[in-house]
Deep mutational scan, measured.
Amino acid sequence: TLFEALYDYEARTEDDLSFHKGEKFQILNSSEGDWWEARSLTTGETGYIPSIYLAPV
């Protein structure tokens, strides 16, 4: 399942991933609670993103 960003997000740590509204992600690991490891389909970068900023596509 792909997810789309509902809002912009600016990374706060080196493990976080910055993204823009409308960016799409492949989720790599969603077992860490509210922060999911994801790969951006726009940039190819991976990192942790807040799941509350996402909606399934």
Rank of each mutant, 00 (worst) to 15 (best):
T1R: 11
T1W: 14
T1Y: 12
L2M: 10
L2H: 06
L2P: 04
E4M: 14
E4I: 15
E4A: 08
E4N: 04
A5Q: 00
A5H: 01
A5S: 06
A5V: 01
L6E: 03
Y7V: 12
Y7I: 12
D8W: 05
D8H: 07
Y9P: 00
Y9Q: 02
Y9M: 04
Y9R: 06
E10M: 12
E10Q: 13
E10L: 11
A11P: 05
R12N: 10
R12A: 10
R12S: 12
T13R: 15
T13M: 12
T13W: 13
T13S: 14
E14I: 11
E14R: 11
E14L: 12
E14G: 14
D15F: 15
D15S: 14
D16E: 15
D16M: 14
D16C: 14
L17S: 02
L17F: 12
S18D: 04
S18P: 06
S18T: 09
F19Q: 00
H20F: 14
H20E: 09
H20C: 10
G22I: 00
G22F: 06
G22M: 03
E23P: 00
K24D: 01
F25I: 02
F25Y: 02
Q26H: 10
Q26Y: 15
Q26L: 14
Q26V: 14
I27P: 01
L28R: 04
L28I: 11
S30N: 12
S30P: 08
S30C: 12
S30E: 08
S30K: 13
S31L: 12
S31E: 10
S31C: 10
E32T: 12
E32W: 11
D34M: 13
D34P: 09
D34Q: 11
D34G: 12
D34L: 13
W36P: 00
E37A: 08
E37G: 05
A38Y: 04
A38M: 07
A38I: 06
A38D: 00
R39W: 07
S40N: 11
S40Q: 05
L41D: 03
L41P: 02
T42R: 14
T42Q: 09
T42V: 11
T43F: 02
T43P: 00
T43K: 03
T43Y: 02
G44F: 07
G44Q: 06
T46S: 09
G47Y: 06
G47H: 06
G47W: 05
Y48K: 13
I49F: 02
P50D: 07
P50I: 06
P50F: 13
S51W: 13
S51E: 04
I52C: 14
I52K: 15
I52P: 07
Y53F: 10
Y53T: 04
Y53I: 06
Y53K: 04
L54K: 01
L54M: 10
L54V: 12
L54E: 00
A55H: 10
A55M: 12
A55N: 07
A55W: 10
P56S: 07
P56W: 06
P56N: 05
P56I: 09
P56T: 06
V57F: 09
V57W: 10
